[in-house]
Write a protein that binds this DNA or RNA. Sequence first.
DNA 1: GTCTATAATCCGATAGAC
DNA 2: GTCTATCGGATTATAGAC
Lengths: 163, 163
Amino acid sequence: MRAIAAEVGVQAGALYNYTPDKQSLLFDLMQSHLTELLAAVPDTRDAEPRTRLRKLVEFHIRFHDARREAVFIAYMELRNLTDVNFARIEELRRRYEDHLEQILRDGVASGDFRVQDTKIATLAIIAMLTGVNTWFRAGGRLSLDEITGQYWDLVRNGVAADG
Amino acid sequence: MRAIAAEVGVQAGALYNYTPDKQSLLFDLMQSHLTELLAAVPDTRDAEPRTRLRKLVEFHIRFHDARREAVFIAYMELRNLTDVNFARIEELRRRYEDHLEQILRDGVASGDFRVQDTKIATLAIIAMLTGVNTWFRAGGRLSLDEITGQYWDLVRNGVAADG
DNA sequence: GTCTATAATCCGATAGAC
DNA sequence: GTCTATCGGATTATAGAC
């Protein structure tokens, strides 16, 4: 709380005019992050499964790169949530995962994708995509667009029906 | 330190007969974990790239599942290492990544794999595999062998030359 | 709404008896 | 090698002046 106060430019006690306690502040940060994530998911219902999957891959990498700090907190501070707040956050996270899983399900049904278990593929793909944040730094050897293209190749081939 | 002492069954002060300070204890834990990881990497130099990759995927998931606590600490406590210790740990981690990247390079050279950038594919695959730890619990819907098989399908197709 | 001051608690680490 | 006791400092949160 002192570090946050210093960043904002006030004393620690003044923060308690804006949040009842540290737990609420942490929960609100995570909830806002995931709510904004859900609101920003591209609506691709009318497109083909491959296009929908590509759009989601591109969106996920872009969105998470643009909010590195929030993503970092959302992962590292999970264990500091109360049981009730943890359950709420997990529910939002599950709803995001459902967007991807639905695309995979539709792609399997249409014959575009071949995946044994869409839930496992969902978790695998999300972990892979989110991992970009742990090493990517702007100005490196490759641009984020180039990296996104390569991740898309891995995902596309990974779930392709003609693999 | 007090929590560790309680777990071991001694008072907090007694721990300092075994470690000079908390930083050294944390570093030793991470270093041991990664050293054991490197020592346990299967030697598959004489096998075909596809077999080598499959063996590494199976090894990675098995090894990390068997050491959930160490893996958790190795990720969550990274930011609490001094700069010098952080560099040492990153060097060990890089050496592990090199095992996978060499397999991918050899597979690309032999025509078995098609990957634009082996370094990116390495990081993507490792993030995907390590992610299993965040959700897998023994006794669930699928066994770890079944899950490993599905991750292998995703990896195999992802880097396949005939995708 | 912000400040200073402080309460209550927790932390890593040390000192010294045994 | 472990204990008790404690130091010095950090933490979250509150109280009360302005």
